[in-house]
Each structure stands twice: as C-alpha cells, then as structure tokens.
C-alpha cells in the first residue's frame, strides 16, 4: 500500500471517529442535560396571556416572539402540555419580540388585539402556523396578511384595525419585554417553571420538566 493511501486513510478514520464520536457523545449528553435552575425569580403572574387555572400547581411562563422560528418549533410541545395537563398547568405567554425580527412586535400587537376579543390563543396558533408565510413579506403586505388571519377567526375587523393602528396594547407588550429584560431573558423561547428558568436541550423535554415539577 502506498504511503499516501495510508496517510489519507488514517486521517479519514481519525476524522470519522472524532465526528461520529462527538455526535454520539453530544447527543447522549444533550438528552440528559435539560434542567431547571435552582434560583427562583419573582415574576408578575398578573400579567401575560394565560390558559389554565390560577390555582394550577405549575405555572409555566414562556417569553416568546411570534417571528422566532424556534418559538414556532416549541409551539406543538406547548400545545401538548395544554391538553395533557389542563388543570394542573397554567401557561402564561409573555411577549419578547427580538430586535432582529422586524414583524415580531407587529404580530404581538395583532395577537393582543385578537385577545381583546377573546381569541388570543387562536391567533397565537395561527401566527405560528403561518410564520414562514409572513416572515419574509414586504413591510406593506404584513398587516394585510394578519388581517386575513383575523378574518379566518371571524373577529371584528374594524375593532382590530383600530386597536392595531392605535397601538392600544403597546404598554402591555413593552411591560412584557421590560420584565423579560429584568429577568435576563436573552433568547426566545425562554421558559420559567414556578419561577425557575428552564434550560432546555430539546422542546420534548418540556413535558419531562413539567411532569417532574408536578411530582413535587
């Protein structure tokens, strides 16, 4: 066998071992590394959009951004929690539109305006489901797109337009952002379970984290 063949073969084997070993190790490590921080922070539970009873044993607060792809990915797992633990878990949605997402705040406004007519969670689901469709629209077409979603939900269009144009919910959204900043939220989605920050490796772990909290 030629020297070059031996050298290339050795490099290839070494690279493959490092890469595949690394993936295996990291996957194993990640699968077990979702955790909840020890420190309990004070969160104002009177704020935010809620689903579930105020007396629920577990309060799960999510700081989220409608234009964030990772938040859209988390959505089915959050939805699953709603159906698995309707009485034991209260989900609280707090807005945290990131500056790099130009329509994040706008979407939050539309969701709040839908919430004023009792359909925040329906609008929330629609916004995440259609995120890929509206995220890259030109600035002047986004409101039209959101209006289309409002029509699907059979809401009072004029009232919603008024609320959105009048920035009626600006202070509510700003309060959420301010609280997130005070807590040190720097990415979305960020979850807090009974006041403790959840460090997730996969959104699937949300279920485990909630189940463990319910056992306490």
């Amino acid at each position: 066998m030629k020297t070059e063949t031996k050298i290339l073969g050795a490099i290839l084997v070494l690279t493959a071992v490092i890469l595949f070993g690394g993936i295996f190790f990291l996957s194993k490590f990640s699968a077990n590394s979702s955790s909840v921080e020890e420190k309990i922070v004070q969160i104002d539970y009177s704020k935010g959009q809620k689903i579930g009873s105020d007396s629920a044993k577990v309060k799960l607060v999510e700081f989220s951004d409608f234009q964030c792809p990772a938040c859209a990915q988390a959505e089915p797992f959050v939805k699953q929690l709603k159906s698995v633990y309707p009485d034991q878990v209260q989900l609280i949605y707090r807005h945290f539109p990131l500056p790099q997402h130009p329509f994040g705040k706008q979407a939050a406004n539309w969701a709040e305006a839908a919430g004023a007519q009792g359909k925040f969670w329906e609008m929330h689901s629609k916004l995440f489901e259609t995120q890929a469709e509206w995220s890259n629209l030109p600035d002047n077409e986004v409101d039209e797109f959101f209006l289309g979603l409002v029509k699907q939900l059979e809401l009072d269009e004029n009232k919603i337009k008024q609320d959105v144009e009048g920035n009626t919910f600006k202070s509510r959204i700003d309060d959420d952002v301010a609280e997130g900043q005070r807590l040190g939220v720097d990415s979305t989605p960020t979850f807090y379970i009974n006041g403790r920050k959840v460090i997730l490796q996969t959104f699937n772990d949300l279920n485990t984290v909630v189940a463990e909290e319910l056992k306490k």
């Binding site: 890469l19 690394g22 993936i23 990291l26 990640s30 990772a70 797992f77 490796q201 959104f203 699937n204």
Partner: peptide
C-alpha cells in the same frame, strides 16, 4: 455532521 447534530435538537 454539524447540521445532522443540530437537526436532532430543537434549540
């Protein structure tokens, strides 16, 4: 490999 690893996670 990097993409494969990232695709197996949700973050």
């Amino acid at each position: 490999s990097f993409l494969f690893y990232e695709y197996s996670l949700s973050g």
